[in-house]
Simulated assay, not measured.
Amino acid sequence: MASTGYENFVYRGERKFYTELTGRAEIRNAEAFLARDAFVIGGVGAPESGAAPIERAEFSAVDREIHGRDVWAAFAVRVIGPNPSDWCLINQFHDVPDKQDAVVPPPFGAELVPGGRGFRIMARAAGSRHHTAVDVERTVYEIDEFERDRWHHFVYHLVFERAKSGVIQIWHNGVSVADLVVPFGYNNEVGPYFKYGAYRAATSGATHTEYVNVELRNASLLPRVANPRSITPKVAW
């Protein structure tokens, strides 16, 4: 794969699957990352001992001190193939559980609705330390038909706050689809971090996701709503 400014790939069978980057890193070209060839996590290393296998092919940001700060993300994503029959996240802000915590869904995640062609974005909050469940879960954006084989442009503006002052603003293809002030985020020692790509239960079927022009920063990315970066993808797999 040609350079996109990312380093420290994790390899599985000579293929690149996963890397970490700084929170202010940015893909400046329009080369696509194709989350297609997942590696399986099951048994030891799975979220819970003896848990069913999961599959993931994600990029990850390492900036985890984001509670109470403005976080902006802008990107284009294209989904190819049907929704899986089980859960499938295509981007998320992943929590960093404290040692005593139970494994719970991410405080903010975009997912393909099992079966059908739906798409939704969920936000969650938990105020207590070492929580075993979330206190609040809400759907902040949902559509029944997430069109395939086309690029969808998203901009997120988020402020993770477990109190009432959390901010969730989402734009999809230039249209405001969520503008909320609600609690969301978990009471962990370390804050959540952005991940994008495929992360799903190990199910049959091929559901591919492609990403281009991913930007993550604390400064505003509001101009990307009306003027997303141009797309000339070159998938190098």
Rank of each mutant, 00 (worst) to 15 (best):
D144A: 10
E145T: 07
E145Y: 03
E145V: 08
F146S: 04
F146H: 08
D149R: 14
R150F: 05
R150W: 08
W151R: 00
H153W: 05
F154W: 11
F154S: 00
V155Q: 09
Y156K: 02
Y156V: 01
Y156Q: 06
H157C: 12
H157D: 13
H157T: 12
H157N: 15
L158R: 06
L158T: 04
L158I: 05
F160N: 00
E161D: 15
R162I: 14
R162E: 01
A163P: 02
A163L: 06
A163N: 13
K164Y: 03
K164M: 03
S165D: 14
G166L: 04
G166W: 00
G166D: 02
V167W: 06
V167E: 11
V167R: 12
I168N: 10
I170K: 01
I170S: 02
W171Y: 14
W171N: 02
H172M: 11
N173C: 13
G174M: 10
V175F: 00
V175P: 02
S176P: 09
S176K: 15
V177K: 10
A178G: 05
A178V: 06
D179G: 08
L180Y: 08
V181Y: 01
V181A: 09
V181Q: 12
V182G: 05
V182E: 10
V182P: 07
V182L: 15
P183I: 02
F184G: 00
G185I: 01
Y186C: 07
Y186H: 09
N187G: 11
N187T: 12
N188R: 11
N188Y: 06
N188F: 10
E189T: 13
E189G: 13
V190Q: 13
G191I: 05
P192I: 09
P192F: 01
P192T: 06
Y193W: 15
Y193I: 08
Y193S: 13
Y193A: 10
F194M: 12
F194K: 04
K195Q: 12
Y196S: 06
G197K: 04
G197Q: 06
G197I: 05
A198I: 06
A198Y: 05
Y199M: 03
Y199A: 04
R200A: 12
A201P: 05
A201T: 09
A202Q: 09
T203N: 08
T203G: 10
G205L: 07
G205Y: 03
G205D: 02
G205W: 03
T207V: 07
H208K: 15
H208Q: 13
T209M: 05
T209R: 01
T209N: 00
E210R: 09
E210K: 06
Y211P: 00
V212H: 04
V212Y: 01
V212S: 11
V214W: 15
V214C: 12
V214N: 07
E215H: 15
E215L: 15
E215A: 15
E215F: 10
L216H: 14
L216E: 00
L216V: 08
L216M: 10
L216F: 07
N218G: 14
N218Q: 14
N218K: 13
A219I: 11
